[in-house]
Design a protein around this nucleic acid. Structure first.
Lengths: 208, 208, 208, 208
DNA sequence: TATTAAGCGAGACGGTACGTCGGGTCTTCGG
DNA sequence: CCGAAGACCCGACGTACCGTCTCGCTTAATA
């Protein structure tokens, strides 16, 4: 997962330590918690992981890529259990997402790598595949479930459906991120309730 | 505006050059366009501004503070002319905001300083007062206008009104930011139309 | 004494404070004792003297010139009372000179300004007139006294006499300076006795 | 020779470049010639040597230590070939020493580091072992040779002998240094002849 | 089993930027 | 015109990380 090797698969020589990989990612997360993104150094990560700097650079191109990989796994925790209604599903996942964003390692890292990505297309792609697309899947699952429940009509055009899913994703994820990181206000029960009402109401209105 | 002086206003000694201030901020914006946030150096800014590094440090504590001030003024361009309806007002301001975020100096800087701010309370406060609060005002203006037009009911409780404004702000700003910087998709006429429909529908539903 | 003014003598305007001059030199000596030559700064001297940096630069061209003037006055303390014999005179003045060199302000400053002077002819001249020539006078006085006593013959040629005085001066001053600053050994009674014996013996032998 | 390593000899890691050492010292001497001591900068030396500043600081604590090492090697050139008599030996070595002191790199550096050493005991020690002691050896060699020739009596007490050697060293080195650097007069054939006469006369007188 | 190609730790390397300090100059005000 | 205060430009400081490079050593798959 870390880096595409020059040779798609070597066979000779000593294989890379699998243990080192996880130690490095773990050390990266720990360092993010302790010192934050901007004071995170490759040397520090290497030391914490009990590994030489060379080993880091053999696997990741730099700090950006390393941190994306270290943080990406955290976003796999997000789940969408069936809570019985569209509103309940939304409230559940929004709370989950907000509490994930509140963790120090994601809080300090996420916006930073996004900022770096504005001038780095490969990084942008990596973020998209490692983090963004995995969350967007939740929107599709939730939508399908709501349709099955009859809460939302099935879209006529699959292309329109995709655009709608993108919109919902940007609105939901964007609102939470903005609330937490920019406004700096808590995503509490009350806010989630109001946000969900707004979103469900908008979806219903748009469906007419 | 740059830095609070130790004494609110000294009288002795040579006064600080007012011209330098603007030259520095302008140089900062130009450098952001050319090299982006992470490769922006204080030395480079000083050179571009025709100023000594010490002059920068005398006025700003570091790169973060400098960039916030340099970028903040751009957000004052946002306006909310009366376009005749709530939907038209929202579409107008969202398009404005999106095109502002698309400028290279804001695109590269905004997320970066927000990321830094997660570990720096004074910086967070500076961002809030210099950038965030100025935008939030637009929400209040738009809401009042919609109420005057009869598109939205006047809220019973001013406290509830404030929370609603905050929510709308986080949703609108967050959605645009996420669309542009995270999803990396354009905020075009079509997307704005769909987003506005969702938001207006949600507001109408919530008002009932 | 400090600096030759651009106009040999002005008449209009506020005259320079005479008190400032002495305060600055005194502050310079004090700072030399505290921090030594290489960490001595003009700003520090100005602060200690309760004077603005501008005032320093109006009177001295730089650190070198200031320190020469500050230290020069100390060399005026050297005296050559008649101790009854050439050897006693030499012993007396050598001890005086050594104890002067042992003072922290001279110890740290003297070699430093001499070093600077190797690439700065005006400074070399200033050192010569302010410090060196004043000591050389002692040699002439001592020689004349020894001749009056009949310990040394009067030189036939005044030109030869001058060269002899220069030689004695370089030998005496050089030996003490080298002993104190380079060898780092004390100039005690015993050493002075041995040195004087060597010098007087040499003079006597050369006189034959 | 440059700096005592923390571990007397490491085994792991990339070894220090031996070539860099000589390049740095050579660059230091060249820079001394061109710009003198007080305008000599570590950055300039690094650039001239084609080396990073960090490499300098990894090996030497600062400018003082670096310059001592750079200049010390020049003093190894001094030799004391047998010229047949004590006076001839002295004249020879004094001329050698004077011409060494006349070289721009020593002239500007020697007094400077001695001045610095007045407030820096480790530096003083470094100067002593790297420069001073090596010259003092010449005195011992010359003395022994003179005794063998019968020009000087063998000293009864070895302790007295050492003190005498120290005295001669301070007188000879001090006189030359003072003549060249303080008085700023040339050490020509004539001066050397007169000085040697004085010294040999003094030694003879003291031996009685 | 021996070879061998790569991985690995350590740490020196050439760089770039940092934030600070001091130098010497200037610009203001008040005396 | 002097003097204080302090901002100004400049250049050097010594440090921190960067990402790369040598070292000597392990380690496992292949021959």
């Amino acid at each position: 997962m870390p880096m595409q090797h020059s040779s798609p698969s070597r066979t000779t020589g000593r294989p890379r330590s699998a243990a080192a990989d996880e130690a490095i990612l773990e050390a990266t997360r720990a360092a993010l918690v302790d010192v934050g993104w901007s004071k995170l150094t490759m040397g520090e990560v290497a030391t914490r992981a009990g590994v030489a700097k060379t080993t880091l650079y053999r696997r990741w191109a730099g700090k950006n890529e390393l941190v994306v990989d270290a943080v990406a796994v955290l976003f796999d925790e997000l789940e969408l259990p069936d809570r019985g209604s569209l509103a309940a599903d939304i409230e559940g996942v929004v709370l989950q997402f907000a509490s994930l964003l509140d963790r120090p390692e994601t809080k300090t890292a996420l916006m930073a790598v996004v900022a770096e990505a504005t001038r780095d297309e490969p990084l942008r792609e990596r973020i998209r595949t490692s983090i963004v697309e995995r969350q967007k899947r939740l929107v599709l699952v939730g939508r399908a479930r709501a349709e099955r429940r009859g809460e939302l009509p099935a879209p006529a055009d699959p292309c329109v459906a995709a655009a709608a899913a993108d919109l919902i994703f940007d609105v939901a994820a964007g609102a939470v991120v903005h609330r937490v990181l920019v406004s700096g206000e808590p995503v509490d029960q009350e806010w989630v309730r109001r946000f969900t009402a707004l979103l469900v109401g908008g979806l219903a209105a748009a469906a007419d």
